Amino acid sequence: DETGKFLVLALYDYQEKSPREVTAKKGDILTLLNSTNKDWWKVEVNGRQGFVPAAYVKFL
């Protein structure tokens, strides 16, 4: 159920650099879980949760 969740689009490829991050490919649609940090947003992609740089994604 996606009610109340926001989707964001990956603008660039991002390769995770730590276990707390997730890899995303340009064009991926990610479920935004938390955007309270202006630099790192928590997302879910391909069943995995983790952080990506906020500058790499935008709201749909």
Rank of each mutant, 00 (worst) to 15 (best):
Val45Thr: 08
Thr31His: 09
Glu21His: 05
Phe51Pro: 00
Gly47Gln: 03
Val43Gly: 02
Val45Gln: 05
Ser35Pro: 06
Asp28Arg: 04
Leu30Lys: 00
Tyr56Phe: 12
Glu44Cys: 12
Ser35Met: 14
Thr36Gly: 09
Ala24Phe: 15
Ser35Phe: 12
Thr36Ala: 12
Tyr56Cys: 15
Ala54Gln: 03
Leu7Met: 10
Leu9Arg: 07
Ala55Trp: 10
Leu60Pro: 02
Glu21Trp: 09
Leu11Asp: 01
Ile29Thr: 05
Trp41Pro: 00
Ala54Gly: 02
Arg48Pro: 03
Leu9Gly: 00
Lys38Ser: 11
Ala54Ile: 06
Trp40Val: 01
Gln49Leu: 07
Ala55Lys: 14
Leu30Ala: 02
Val45His: 10
Phe6Thr: 13
Leu11Tyr: 04
Ala24Asn: 02
Val57Gly: 00
Ala10Gly: 02
Trp40Ile: 01
Leu9Thr: 06
Asp28Cys: 11
Asp13Trp: 11
Tyr14Ala: 02
Phe51Gly: 01
Val8Asp: 00
Glu21Thr: 08
Arg20Ile: 12
Lys5Cys: 15
Val57Cys: 10
Gly27Thr: 03
Val8Pro: 00
Val57Pro: 00
Ser18Gly: 13
Thr36Phe: 11
Asp1Ile: 14
Asp28Lys: 04
Tyr12Asp: 06
Asp13Tyr: 10
Pro19Gly: 08
Asn46Gly: 10
Trp40Gly: 00
Leu9Glu: 10
Glu44Lys: 04
Leu60Glu: 03
Gly27Ala: 03
Val57Ala: 00
Pro53Thr: 07
Tyr12His: 09
Gly27Pro: 03
Leu33Gly: 01
Leu11Cys: 12
Tyr14Gly: 02
Phe6Ser: 10
Lys25Cys: 12
Thr3Gln: 13
Leu7Arg: 11
Val45Ser: 08
Lys26Pro: 05
Lys38Pro: 14
Thr23Tyr: 05
Trp40Asn: 00
Asp1His: 14
Glu44Gly: 03
Ala10Trp: 08
Phe59Arg: 09
Val52Cys: 06
Lys5Glu: 09
Leu9His: 02
Ala54His: 02
Val45Tyr: 07
Ala55Leu: 10
Ala55Glu: 09
Pro53Ile: 13
Lys25Ile: 07
Asn34Glu: 13
Val22Glu: 03
Thr36Gln: 12
Trp40His: 01
Lys26Phe: 06
Lys42Trp: 15
Lys26Ile: 08
Gly47Lys: 03
Arg20Thr: 11
Thr3His: 14
Ala24Met: 15
Gly47Thr: 05
Asp1Cys: 15
Asn37Asp: 14
Ala10Thr: 09
Thr3Cys: 15
Thr23Met: 04
Phe51Thr: 02
Lys42His: 11
Pro53Val: 11
Ile29Phe: 05
Val52Ser: 02
Lys17Gly: 07
Asn37Gly: 09
Lys26Asn: 04
Ile29Ala: 02
Glu16Tyr: 05
Phe6Cys: 15
Lys5Arg: 13
Asp28Pro: 03
Leu7Pro: 00
Lys38Thr: 10
Leu33Cys: 11
Lys25Trp: 08
Tyr12Phe: 13
Phe59Leu: 15
Pro19Phe: 10
Leu33Trp: 05
Val43Asn: 00
Gly47Leu: 05
Trp41Ile: 07
Asn46Lys: 08
Gly27Asn: 04
Pro53Trp: 13
Val43Pro: 00
Ala54Lys: 06
Thr31Gln: 10
Lys42Thr: 06
Leu33Ala: 02
Lys38Glu: 10
Phe51Cys: 10
Lys58Gly: 11
Lys42Met: 15
Lys25Leu: 09
Ser18Trp: 07
Gly47Ala: 03
Phe51Met: 06
Thr36Lys: 11
Val52Asn: 02
Thr23Leu: 05
Ala24Glu: 03
Glu16Phe: 06
Lys25Val: 08
Val45Cys: 08
Arg20Ser: 12
Val43Tyr: 02
Trp41Arg: 00
Gly47Asp: 04
Glu21Gln: 10
Leu30Met: 15
Asp28Asn: 06
Asn46Glu: 07
Tyr12Ile: 09
Lys17Pro: 03
Glu21Asp: 05
Asn46Ile: 04
Ala10Gln: 06
Asp39Cys: 14
Thr36Leu: 09
Ser18Phe: 06
Phe6Pro: 10
Glu16Cys: 14
Lys38Tyr: 06
Leu30Gln: 02
Leu30Thr: 01
Lys58Asp: 06
Thr3Tyr: 13
Gln49Gly: 03
Asp28Leu: 08
Gly4Trp: 12
Ala24Ser: 04
Phe51Glu: 02
Gln15Trp: 13
Ala24Ile: 15
Glu2Tyr: 14
Lys42Asp: 02
Ala55Phe: 09
Arg48Val: 08
Gln49Ser: 10
Gln49Ile: 15
Val43Asp: 00
Leu33Phe: 03
Val8Cys: 10
Leu33Ile: 14
Ala54Pro: 03
Val57Gln: 01
Glu16Pro: 15
Leu11Lys: 04
Ala24Pro: 02
Gly4Phe: 13
Lys17Gln: 13
Lys58Leu: 13
Asp1Phe: 14
Val8Arg: 01
Gly4Ile: 13
Asn46Trp: 07
Ile29Met: 05
Leu11Thr: 04
Leu7Ala: 05
Gly47Val: 04
Leu7Ile: 08
Gly27Met: 04
Tyr12Met: 11
Asn37Arg: 08
Lys42Arg: 10
Lys38His: 10
Leu11Ala: 03
Leu60Asn: 06
Ala54Met: 05
Leu32Ser: 01
